[in-house]
């Protein structure tokens, strides 16, 4: 029954089968799930690394974008301020001009009024003067001349003198 150093066929076959069973058991209950898990984990890690990378890139892009927008807004604000200042300046100028015009108009109107007043007074004076002159002339030349003719003559003379003076 006992062979060389205890080597026997039944024992050998038994150990062979035992080892093959162990091989099968460990393969299906040990190595396969563990290796699957290891692969899954390494995939997961790879994925999250990629994700982190992508997020970082996105963040950087966003930062650049924000920077750009901020500078754009700054420019816009600057231009708005400039425009507003310009507008204010213009409005001021306009107001000044308006005021000047208004003043000019008032002055003009006043002058016209004064002139009109003066003319009226001059007219009245002239009329009075004519009347006085006529009266005087009547007295001087008595009743030689037609009163109406006389008046026209004097008036004409005065008219001429008045226009002369006014100019």
């Amino acid at each position: 029954m006992e062979g060389f150093l205890g080597l026997t066929l039944p024992s050998f076959i038994g150990q062979l089968i035992n080892f093959l069973i162990l091989l099968g058991l460990l393969t299906f209950f040990g190595y396969k799930p563990i290796r699957k898990m290891l692969d899954e984990r390494s995939n997961r890690i790879k994925q999250s690394m990629e994700q982190a990378e992508a997020t970082k890139r996105e963040y950087e892009q966003a930062q650049v974008e924000v920077e750009k927008q901020i500078s754009k807004a700054r420019d816009e604000g600057q231009s708005i301020i400039g425009k507003a200042a310009q507008g204010g300046e213009r409005a001021k100028e306009e107001a000044r001009q308006e005021a000047r015009k208004e003043a000019q108009a008032i002055v003009e109107r006043t002058r016209a009024e004064i002139e009109r007043e003066r003319d009226k007074i001059v007219d009245e004076l002239r009329k009075e003067f004519v009347d006085t002159a006529i009266l005087a002339a009547e007295r001087v030349i008595s009743e030689t001349l037609d009163k109406g003719k006389h008046r026209r003559l004097i008036e004409k003379t005065l008219e001429e003198s008045a226009t002369l003076r006014r100019n």
Binding site: Q15, N18, I21, L22, L25, L26, F29, G30, P33, I34, M37, E40, R41, R44
Partner: peptide
């Protein structure tokens, strides 16, 4: 040999229940 087999199988069997990431 059976004890070794049982120990190894037991370790792997218990260790791979409820595998966690």
């Amino acid at each position: 040999a059976w004890i070794s087999t049982a120990v190894l199988f037991g370790l792997f069997f218990i260790g791979t229940r409820n595998m966690k990431l």
